[in-house]
């Protein structure tokens, strides 16, 4: 729980905190991070739309309003705090905007690697 018992591992030239790996173990958190690769900050409302829609893309059918509201609630109560704890995002004071922190290259590479492994259909 506390910051004192963190462990780090090296990937390439950087060190990655265990809390980053923990953040990456949840699919909704991963898709939130993927979007932040391209956008420095995003409203929580849009982030919920994106996570809902993107996860659904691979599966046939339509993502509904109820599904999206569930994602929104889980972002607020669970996932954004975990991302914040891992120092991956900052939450605005009004809690309506999530911004990417200054990710070390090793973290960006890790997130990109996860993105390609999870959503990539071909090499590009």
């Amino acid at each position: 729980m506390g910051r004192g018992d963190r462990e780090t591992s090296g990937v390439g030239d950087g060190e990655i905190d265990d809390s980053v790996f923990y953040a990456l173990r949840n699919r909704r958190r991963r898709f939130a991070l993927y979007f932040l690769l391209e956008h420095e900050s995003v409203s929580l409302a849009e982030l919920a739309d994106v996570v809902t829609g993107w996860i659904r893309t691979g599966e046939y059918g339509m993502a509904t309003r109820a599904e999206r509201d569930g994602v929104y609630a889980s972002l607020v109560h669970r996932h954004v705090p975990v991302l914040e704890e891992a120092d991956l995002v900052e939450w605005s004071d009004d809690r309506e905007t999530v911004s990417r922190t200054n990710w070390p290259v090793s973290v960006s590479e890790l997130v990109r690697l996860a993105l390609t492994a999870e959503t990539g259909e071909d090499e590009s």
């Binding site: 993927y34 979007f35 391209e38 993107w54 390609t116 090499e123």
Partner: peptide
């Protein structure tokens, strides 16, 4: 925009 990864988008 979404980051490049080959997914079809939504």
């Amino acid at each position: 925009r979404l980051p490049d990864a080959g997914s079809a988008g939504f």
